[in-house]
Amino acid sequence: MSNNNGTLLEVKNLRTYFETEDGTVKAVDGVSFALQRGETLGIVGESGSGKSVTNLSIIRLVPNPPGRIAGGEIVFAGQDLLQLTEEEVRQIRGRRISMIFQDPMTSLNPFMKISRQLMEMTRLHLGHNKAQAYEHAVKMLEMVGIPDARARVEDYPHEFSGGMRQRVMIAMALSCEPELLIADEPTTALDVTIQAQILELIKKLKQRTGTSVILITHDLGVVAGMTDHVVVMYAGKVFERAPTRELFALPGNPYTRGLLRSVPDPTAEQGKLYQIPGLPPDVAHLKPGCPFAPRCDRVAEICRQEFPPFVQLNAEHYSLCHFAAEVYRESQKESSTSL
């Protein structure tokens, strides 16, 4: 592999824009982060934050038109994916980078037996012959915990339950042993006991195969249990980036702080929940200044005038806020008094 420092993926100043009747929507606007080999990176955000578009950009699946990658670099194992031809990207997509989505039905072909769909992948990418591909398909279904895999491989997608379908999806995504798995809300449509199964499965497979994972989710509980690093997105920007424990213990951005406080903690007795007022912004009509300013509880005049700086708070901890250092200090104070 062409890495020298353990970095598998580096997204640098990515900008993905959409042309709409409403004008240019800067869905992703200057996003940067890095993913180390063997790590899980969580990307958290609400709808419209740009978290899914970021990942569609990584695998070059942004619908064009209306979308286009307007700038930046996506360096995967030493190669800038944005410089590759469509054909070269196809060699990587599915083979070295694969994806699972919230609704597996959208990525499984309803008219094709699972066996054929799994075999297509490895015949194309790994050069398997028919017999090898078939055996590999059965092996993958077994690995993701489908009971009676040898029989079920002949079924169609609709014959599986939601949880089982997501397992099939994971089997398909991992069948070529990708270096990077992008999981976009993989458990959002599932029941909580099934969610636990799938998350446990992703963890286990990650340990076994060494695959790096990007986990996109709105669920801070899932992030807490699954990830090493977190990127918090809002209005197409990275608002905060930190190792997971640090982010939860010492958030350095008012949006992250608000988000953390607005989630009910089942292990604690809480009164009224903290609530972030207002609505997420319309990315097509962002005003100057900080996009979170209209909802921020510590907004000052400067926030409405100037776009905030991306402030480094700790070795790997950054926050997009005029008052990042102050917010960080407050978090430190709170965490020391709560101990």
């Binding site: 339950s161 949880g163 029941d191 249990g225 939860f248 089942p266």
Partner: peptide, 23 residues
Amino acid sequence: SAVPVPDPEIESQRRRIVLEGDV
């Protein structure tokens, strides 16, 4: 036990009862 708790410290120490199979 399947409910994710928004706290990495708690999550890292939790023992989950993972149910086999579907509803």
